[in-house]
Design a protein around this nucleic acid. Structure first.
Lengths: 361, 361
DNA sequence: GGGAGTTTAGCAACGCTGTTGCGTTATACG
DNA sequence: CGTATAACGCAACAGCGTTGCTAAACTCCC
């Protein structure tokens, strides 16, 4: 099947996802509000809400008296009705996060991983972590350093891990955990978390991550963007200085080598300016209007990076870019991985392209 | 209405668009082929085809005897059933292209524009060009240098044109021509043309344009990508040399100034290497797997640019990038603008996100 | 206190979508 | 000429959102 045709059930799923997304973004809501926000008739919304209540995703939580007339029923999401597990696989640790349907982090644990751990060792740690969570999640998401193939679920060559060449991790984990599994680059999972937190206004954004390497997670047109080989966002290896020092990637004058050299020399201002130049290059290329700064190495000196970046971005009456710090802390990757699972099951992006149904080309 | 709900008619439109897209990519097709490609039942395909035949978009063109059994009806697109007009607004000329439903360029004309032409003068030229075309097109597309706002249809500050600040060109043209009008950056229109020509395999690509400025049109995830302010693809103004010469954009060491300086010095090899480095940077950021080289200044020395670019791109067993020359010639922008109009009316992207109905996140 | 007015909810019928069942049609083959 | 085969297409169907209308619940006001 090349391009899938649409059936009635997809229409239903789409509208249900729409309402779940709305429920997630509002503490409480009523039938009329959903009808107005979606363009569906109140009666159609009743049917959708009826199905969601039946499945336990949504519940009635009261009535609203707004003066004259019959009071409207008020609904709200039931966050505890569904759970998802998110993993952040780092070089020496496995971070496991359990989130509810709203994307709230319920528990967060860190398990040490053996040096140069094997796929088998990782899977054991994951199984144990899921067991400890004590609930039956709808799926598990894995955020990991690349390169990897998101669509195929294969880890290509995890940076600085010897046993990880062309490992079909998604399939292995799916079997081991008996759950649907999503595999993605850490930065992409991270930007997903940020996008969830910000809501629909966050249509085009980049999460800049400085933490043993420099990369970006891209959220373009309202969805995670990974590129043809799940390799988008490798802007740490873009050249900023044609005759610069040799980088590990083989080229010269990459952002990463320039930045790290400056940091090693104690010139934090220079490092921040280099990164800021790279970010402006990224903006010139992708024209995102949200930049989120993240990563342990960056957040350690967040103020310098934030102000330097802000100052470097050109502005005009029609160009506005927000620069903020990621505020989900160390959980951001794992939490984002869990949200990707929820998106796949209950999110709009999974059911229908994010450039949505009626957007003009 | 925040996020639109889905109704039955959208489902119908989506499936019809799907079949039209299929018809465009195959010279001839039958019911069974469409059913297999879309996952719809043959009976459903019959209904869709019946509607398309009724509207004249598709016709029966014979039968296929494949041995025993009743022969299958063979269908084909009726290219002449719909037309679209595409404009390429350059600094001194207006190029007008008339295409049919298949995207084939039927006529192409060039009208001189007065120096420093005004919006009124451009509109007059457009109206005259549409009149000469002699058909009733479904709409008109305009490809123009930025910056501009695609969504609002406003030209922000057309580069080197004095009378073009915050001009609501789409609205003006819509009134003047009595047609639906699309306004877009020239490079984005160009990459649309290339994507149409290549078909669905062209999911992630960039059209690199060197012609009085250096820019890229981006096609990401199967759709044109413009960014938050229709400003994506300005990679001519990304920094490649931190301490390089001052560029018109205010920064130092931009790709464009480095490239143009090398060209002015007669060092074409250096210029090509600079551009190639910029392209590799773009690949690191966006991970597209198709690079299309275009623009008068580039195509004049296409071989140097093409081989230099190919050599600069790193490869591995899982990374493959095609580098080709745009072969639509000078019509590429205007033709792409026309195709955007057709996409809006009969294309899948307009009806449903391109990351289609069932793609996983 | 009770009727009028207002707002929300929801049943029932409807139109339209793709689907299913099955008879019809057109061909090849023996 | 009868049979098997393959595609077609009418008719009935299930499921979607919509429409029409009635019921319910509340406030307001006489």
């Amino acid at each position: 099947m090349d391009t899938p045709g649409a059936h009635l059930e997809h229409l239903r799923d789409y509208n249900e996802s729409l309402v779940v997304a709305l429920a997630r973004s509002r503490a409480e809501f009523d039938r009329a509000g959903v009808a107005e926000a979606t363009g569906l008739t109140p009666q159609a919304v009743s049917k959708v809400l009826g199905r969601l209540v039946e499945h336990g995703l949504v519940e009635v939580c009261g009535v609203r008296r707004q003066g004259v007339g019959k009071p409207a029923s008020i609904y709200r999401l039931v966050p505890g009705s569904r759970h998802a597990v998110g993993f952040h696989v780092a070089r020496r640790t496995l971070r496991t996060v359990l989130t509810d349907l709203a994307g709230t982090v319920l528990t967060s644990t860190v398990t040490p991983l053996p040096p140069d751990f094997t796929p088998g060792q990782l899977l054991d740690a994951m199984r144990e972590a899921v067991r400890k969570a004590g609930v039956n999640p709808v799926g598990a998401g894995i955020g990991m350093v690349g390169p990897l193939d998101h669509a195929a679920g294969i880890v290509r060559d995890a940076h600085r891990l010897r046993h990880w060449h062309d490992v079909p991790l998604r399939e292995l984990a799916q079997e081991c955990l008996a759950l649907p599994v999503h595999l993605d680059k850490d930065v992409t999972a991270g930007v997903t978390a940020e996008a969830w937190r910000r809501g629909p206004a966050f249509r085009d954004g980049a999460l800049i991550m400085v933490e043993s390497g420099i990369g970006a997670g891209l959220w373009l047109g309202g969805a995670a963007y990974r590129g043809a080989h799940t390799n988008a966002g490798e802007f740490g290896h873009t050249v900023l200085q044609l005759d610069g020092p040799r980088c590990v990637c083989g080229r010269s004058g990459c952002l990463e080598i320039l930045h790290d050299t400056a940091v090693a020399d104690g010139q934090l201002g220079t490092a921040a300016r280099v990164l800021a130049t790279g970010i402006v290059n990224l903006l010139q290329t992708t024209d995102v209007n949200h930049v989120v700064l993240a990563g342990a190495d960056l957040l350690r000196s967040s103020e310098v990076y934030e102000t330097t970046t802000r100052d470097a971005i050109p502005r005009s009456h029609w160009l506005d870019v927000s620069v903020t710090l990621a505020d989900l802390g160390a959980d951001v990757i794992a939490a984002g991985a869990a949200m990707q699972v929820l998106d796949a099951a209950y999110g709009i992006p999974s059911k229908m392209g994010v450039r949505s149904l009626f957007s003009t080309v």
